[in-house]
Design a protein around this nucleic acid. Structure first.
Lengths: 217, 217
DNA sequence: GTAGTTTTCGCCTGTGAGTCTAAAACCTGG
DNA sequence: CCAGGTTTTAGACTCACAGGCGAAAACTAC
C-alpha cells in the first residue's frame, strides 16, 4: 500500500495531514492518508489517487518517495508493505478537506495508528534536511513573498528561529530566489516597503555546495 | 521483489556486483542480484537472503534502502515492484562469488536487464553524496589504513582526484578518523613511514556541518 | 517635524575547504 | 657515510560562505 506525509505551514506552524480511521484496526485513531495499490499502477499514481480523496492533488507542489516499510508487526493482523511519500502544499492554498481529515501540528501529534508516527517524523526529517541544501522551499512558500514571510515559513518548517536579517541572503547568494520587481506596502505600523521575491525555479535543485569533497578546480 | 547494488573498490575503481541471467527475460544479460520476497519477510531480510547466494553477507559493512520502483514497463511481461538497496563491501575482503557473478567497474557498465542501469546509478549517487557528509567511508575502507590508502578509496568511489595532502584532514577535523598509533613501513623506494588510522565509528553518522540553515547559537 | 517600525544594506568575524610549500623520515646507490 | 630520490606529514595562506551586528532607508502615526 501507499502512504503520504503531506505537510503545510499553517497559522505559523508545520502541520501534517491526518485522517481519523473509521474501522478497525485502530478505529478512531489518527493515521496518514493512503490506501491499497491497484493492479499495474505506479506507486506515485497510487498515492496521488488516494490523496485525491482528501485534498485537491493539484495543490501538491512536490511529491517524492520516502521509504518502504515491511516489518511484519506494523499491522496487527496482516503483513503488508507500505511505501511512504513526502508531499508538500504551499502556504497560500487552503484545499478543502473532508470531515474526517485535519491538519495536525507536527510538534504535538496525537497517537498515530500503525507505524505512522515514525513515518511522519521521517518525512519531517527529510523535509528539514532538504530545506538546507536544496531549493525545496518553493513547495512550501507562496508564489511570491517578502523575505519576512519566507522567514516565517522556514522557521516553522525547520522548528527553530531563523535570523531575520541575513539568513535568507543565503538563498539569494545561492541564486534560488529572484526579485519580482514588485513591492509590498507596509502595514499600519509603518516600515519600509518590502521587496517581493519568488523562487527562480519550481523544480527541485540541489546546491552543489553541500558536496564537501569536491573535484579539484 | 528486492534488489541490491553492492559496491566495492577493487583494483583502483568502484565496482558493482552483477549477475548474468540464465533464463528469459533478458537471458544472458547482466543484472543486479536479488529475488522475490517471501511471506511475512522483511525487505532487508529478503535482500540479505538473496545476497547470501552471491556473497558472504557478513562482509557487508553497510546496507540501506534506496528506492522502490513500480513502473509497469520495467518488466516485459509481469508487473512487479522492486525495492532496491545499497550495500557496501570493504576493500580488504574478497568474498567468494559464483561462476555467474562478477564485479563490474561502474564506469563502464554492460547493458543491464530491466531498469537496473538507472538503479545502479542511483546507488552510486547515494554513495557519493553520503561520502561527503557522513562517515560512510568506513564501509569501503579496510579496518586500518594510511591516509594515502584512504585517498585511493575515496577517489575511486567519488570518480575524481582527491587532493593527496590535505583533503583527508577534513575527516580528521570532523573527528571521523583516529590514530591507531601504528605505523606502516615505507616501500622499496623509501619515504617517510605512514601513520595508520581507523574510523572512530563504524556506524553511520551524519556531519551536522551540512545543515546550512542552523539554529542560532 | 518627531518618534516608532520594518526592511534592507554593508561590514565584520569565524570556520572550514582547498592549495601550496616546506619539513620530516626513510631508502638506495655510490 | 653522504647525496639524491621518495613518500608522508605539517604549517601557512587564500577563498568562499554562513552568521551576526549595526546603520541606513523608507514608510506610518501622532
Amino acid at each position: 500500500m501507499t502512504l503520504a506525509t503531506v505537510f503545510q505551514v499553517r497559522t505559523g506552524d508545520l502541520r501534517v495531514l491526518l485522517w481519523q480511521r473509521a474501522k478497525d484496526p485502530f478505529a478512531g485513531a489518527w493515521s496518514l492518508p493512503g490506501g491499497y495499490l491497484a493492479e499495474a499502477e505506479t506507486l506515485e499514481d497510487s498515492i496521488r489517487r488516494h490523496l485525491a480523496v482528501k485534498v485537491d492533488v493539484r495543490e501538491l507542489a512536490h511529491l517524492e518517495q520516502l521509504e518502504t516499510r515491511s516489518e511484519p508487526g506494523r499491522h496487527p493482523s496482516e503483513w503488508q508493505l507500505a511505501t511512504a511519500y513526502l508531499g508538500l502544499v504551499p502556504l497560500d492554498v487552503d484545499p478543502a478537506v473532508p470531515e474526517d481529515t485535519a491538519w495536525h501540528p507536527v510538534d504535538s501529534l496525537p497517537t498515530l495508528a500503525f507505524d505512522h508516527a515514525p513515518i511522519t517524523l521521517a518525512g519531517r526529517e527529510r523535509l528539514r534536511a532538504k530545506l538546507s541544501y536544496t531549493n525545496l522551499g518553493f513547495a512550501l512558500a507562496p508564489p511570491a513573498f517578502t523575505i519576512s514571510e519566507l522567514r516565517d515559513v522556514y522557521s516553522a518548517a525547520l522548528g527553530h528561529e531563523v535570523s531575520p536579517t541575513n539568513l535568507q541572503r543565503v538563498l539569494l547568494r545561492r541564486g534560488v530566489l529572484e526579485l519580482t520587481g514588485e513591492q509590498r506596502p507596509p502595514g499600519r505600523a509603518g516600515g519600509r516597503p518590502a521587496a517581493v521575491y519568488r523562487f527562480r525555479s519550481r523544480e527541485l535543485e540541489i546546491t552543489d555546495q553541500f558536496a564537501v569533497l569536491r573535484p579539484p578546480a
